[in-house]
Write a protein that binds this DNA or RNA. Sequence first.
DNA 1: CGAACAATTGAATCCTTTCAAAGGGAGTGG
DNA 2: CCACTCCCTTTGAAAGGATTCAATTGTTCG
Lengths: 206, 206
Amino acid sequence: MVEEVTVLSHERSLDRCAGTTVAFNRGDIIFRQGDFARHWFEVVSGVVRSCRFHVDGHRHLTGFFYPGDVIGAESGLYQATAEAITRAELLRNDQCSSHTEHLNRALRSAQQCIYLFGHRSAMERLSAFLLSIAQRSGRQSTEVALPMSRADIADHLGLTIHTVSRTITELARRSIIATEGPRLLRIIDMSALAHCAGETEPHPNS
Amino acid sequence: MVEEVTVLSHERSLDRCAGTTVAFNRGDIIFRQGDFARHWFEVVSGVVRSCRFHVDGHRHLTGFFYPGDVIGAESGLYQATAEAITRAELLRNDQCSSHTEHLNRALRSAQQCIYLFGHRSAMERLSAFLLSIAQRSGRQSTEVALPMSRADIADHLGLTIHTVSRTITELARRSIIATEGPRLLRIIDMSALAHCAGETEPHPNS
DNA sequence: CGAACAATTGAATCCTTTCAAAGGGAGTGG
DNA sequence: CCACTCCCTTTGAAAGGATTCAATTGTTCG
């Protein structure tokens, strides 16, 4: 296809599969699980979630995708449904023979998800989740926007909305975070949060 | 079982990175998390596990790899440590520019892991795990070999060895499976097992 | 302002973990 | 060949944590 395209925002434009920008509204489906994977996408703005539905109706949110993240790079059939949870712009690209790097990023994203689940307790999972969101959400790392609902977080972490809510409350009670409305919070003690995530826990005491 | 073929056993030999066969004994490390990813591997025989260690010592087994599976296809640093849990032969390949398909398989493997974690209860997780093992272990699908220990299964599913053991016992009590020693079991009622893996929740009865 | 939906909180239940101990193979040495 | 040990697995009972059920509070938007 064409090689020089201004649309590509980042510097790793090894590929010639120039993308076209597509805009989605909150709630729009970007692609569906089981459809043939004709395109892969890079998030430019907004947040996208990917989810799989089980037979009993319960869903599993396999990931949240922020600007710079790649989604749908798999070949064959899409393994999950992707949906915009805020207004979002995505770069849509045709599948091309060599998109190694995007596959790599998709793989890393999957491994991040696996990492989250490696944590056992609700506190560990939520803390690790908040840290990963803080890293990616772009703002000053202390302010964390939560564009997704508690239900989304719960389905991502394998918890219930009640447990998610309680755990957030508990973190606020300990002054590790501060809530500023349901969709925005501030990290007060980053190292304590990392501690809760289980990353720095040499000896167990309280 | 495994037939003797030329170096590349399957037909997808797009790549010129012809592999050399390497043999590992039970317990041998194949590569370590954090090392530079110089090679990627395809399992020819045996079973390999990949795991990540958290700072507090607890580990998470991110996957089990059977013949045909690809491991270590990521670029940069290895994201997990790979270890043979039976005597195993692997095809070692140099990283080459285009290994799209192997990345794809690695991605699918990661997504399989994510899928497992989408299940909530111990019963759901273990049932889904047994089904995935049964599909991949190659034998007649009713006989399932478990080359890994209960501890490995527990760390893979985010449970304890006690819960794993209890859940297996419970499945046997219901005659959904039959155990023939700790490392071998037979699936008696495949549809019931699938039911346990996905549809158990709606209405609880005895 | 009120309706509809989202989030929080309380109390009881259920499930998993933890603590503790017994059973079962495989391998070693007498 | 058998006794013994070690390690893995299984099982029991109590404790802890997440879910469920139920209700309240908070937020958004017409």
